[in-house]
Design a protein around this nucleic acid. Structure first.
Length: 454
RNA sequence: GCCGACAUAGCUUAGUUGGUGGAGCGGUGGACUGUUAAUCCACAGGUCGCAGGUUCGAGUCCUGCUGUCGGCGCCA
């Protein structure tokens, strides 16, 4: 009974027709009711034009006083941008600019806009702000989400998330959740957000990995998409303090095999976007041929030592043993058409959980995937140090206290196996595949060292 | 943590060697029967980020503060 009442209410409010369906020609010459928001308007005393927006697109509505009558005409004519409404009309095909139009027969305003506080985001607010990165638009982010560029970015983002889930689930991976409150660091100690925790200190997690390794002997193939937090005061177009991290962990796997998963995942995301979001990609200015290459071409692999040689041959001042910072990454990737793997970093440049190369223990079995066009590192991963003896040696070498990693060491004490995994920066992938100028363009409410609002 | 810029109406901005701040968009009123970033006329809207200083006089010059933006390091 209660269910039925609820259902009836829902069916009254539920939207029947989307604007994209009308523009696709499914309702030509018939009367339809659409629900949406006023995007733009113009007109005269007897005829009024409103472009109505919903989540799927826009359509121009033609309102003639002689058809709708004076009351409805004046009501609609006096309504401002972003008023919400329900409007009825006949779908007519025209050869004018915006495809089909609605010859309006009636309409009512649902949520009005006060003329004393009109919608603040105007054309001029955006003309100097490709991508919406002015201070004003960042302050009005909750309203900026409605603009067509941001809507397209959010749709692209949704497809990236969906592609990651389908990739892992099609391979029978188990989705597995780790806590976001943690007691210690995964990487260096300086990047943790400290939060009060009932009189103690806790931290926001930087990575799912350590907890995933705990479940590796139980699930063998596991993945997640979850936020990670890093308290770095980074001021670049590639960094957020809260970012979405797609991570995976596999038992019985080598660095080589983990890389194969990473390459297939990134190519799968690229081809999914081509299938699902070509229109959106083009609308935000991305060249589809480039994205197709990311989907179709194999990703070259290069050892750290080769990268150093290439850089030195180009006259870059770099010594063996240094981690490759962004300025060097950029020089290395500037001629790339597709992402490239960089493997076998010196042990001294990487943390203890990376497994030393049995062939030459100056190196570790790890990989970074560097995106082309300066978008930076999109994957970091590798084989884990998996025996008790080796993990204790590596922890001691780094001077890290063992206590903090007791549970991590325990995993090796009870049936340790070779295993590995990687972390992929989902927001970075979204920025790269959409060709965004800044990582903020692809996440609804970006968080960085200077901004936590709105 | 380091380096570099910027701050004028709701928004985007002009503002000369220091002499009482202009425009476009948006808003309000009006004109126009097919516009499409509509057009045209009129009106309203500003402690020039904050606090000091120099000067007869500061949006403009100097100092400090705050906020924001960009770049580096760190990484996804």
């Amino acid at each position: 009974m209660i269910w039925k009442i609820h259902f009836d209410m829902m069916s009254n409010m539920a939207k029947q027709i989307w604007i994209s369906d009308i523009q696709d020609g499914n309702y030509d010459d018939s009367e339809v009711e659409i629900k949406g928001w006023i995007h733009r308007f113009r007109g005269s005393k007897k005829i009024w034009f409103m472009v109505i927006r919903d989540s799927t697109g826009t359509i121009q509505c033609v309102i003639k006083k002689e058809i709708v009558g004076e009351d409805v005409f004046n009501l609609l004519r006096n309504s401002l941008t972003e008023s919400s409404l329900v409007i009825k009309g006949i779908v007519i095909q025209t050869d004018r600019e915006h495809g089909r139009e609605l010859q309006v027969t009636s309409g009512k305003i649902i949520g009005s806009v006060n003329p004393e506080k009109p919608y603040p985001i105007t054309e001029s607010a955006m003309e100097e702000a490709e991508g919406g990165e002015t201070e004003f638009l960042l302050d009005k982010r909750h309203l900026y989400l409605r603009t067509s560029r941001m809507t397209k970015m959010l749709k692209i983002r949704s497809s990236v998330f969906s592609a990651i889930h389908s990739f892992f689930r099609d391979l029978d991976f188990i989705e597995y959740q780790a806590p976001n409150f943690v007691a210690g660091a995964v990487e260096g100690g300086s990047t943790l957000f400290e939060v009060p925790y009932f009189g103690r200190k806790a931290y926001l997690t930087q990575s799912w990995q350590l907890y995933a390794e705990a479940a590796m002997p139980a699930l063998e193939r596991l993945y997640t998409i979850a936020p990670s937090f890093r308290a770095e005061k980074s001021r670049t177009r590639r960094h957020l303090t809260e970012f979405w991290h797609a991570e995976m962990e596999v038992a019985w796997a080598s660095n080589e095999e983990i890389m194969n998963y990473g390459e297939k995942l990134v190519r799968h995301i690229s081809s999914s976007l081509i299938d699902e979001r070509s229109a959106e990609l083009e609308a935000v200015g991305r060249d589809l041929d480039k994205v197709s290459k990311f989907a179709d071409m194999t990703f070259p692999r290069m050892k750290y030592d080769e990268a150093i040689e290439i850089l030195q041959s180009k006259g870059v001042d770099v010594e063996w043993g240094q981690d490759l910072d962004y300025s060097k990454e950029k020089i290395l990737t500037q001629d790339f058409e597709v992402p490239n793997f960089l493997t076998h970093y010196p042990k001294i440049a990487k943390p203890f959980y990376h497994r030393a190369d049995p062939d030459d223990d100056k190196y570790v079995l790890c990989h970074d995937l560097l995106a082309p066009e300066g978008y930076g590192e999109i994957i970091g991963g590798g084989e884990r140090t998996w025996t008790e003896k080796e993990i204790l040696e590596r922890i001691d070498e780094e001077g890290t206290p063992r206590d903090a990693y007791e549970f991590y060491i325990d995993i090796r004490r009870y049936g340790g196996v070779p295993h590995g995994g990687f972390g992929l920066g989902v927001d970075r992938v979204c920025a790269w595949l959409s060709g965004a100028d800044h990582i903020r363009e692809v996440i609804p409410f970006p968080r960085d060292s200077r901004r936590v609002t709105p």
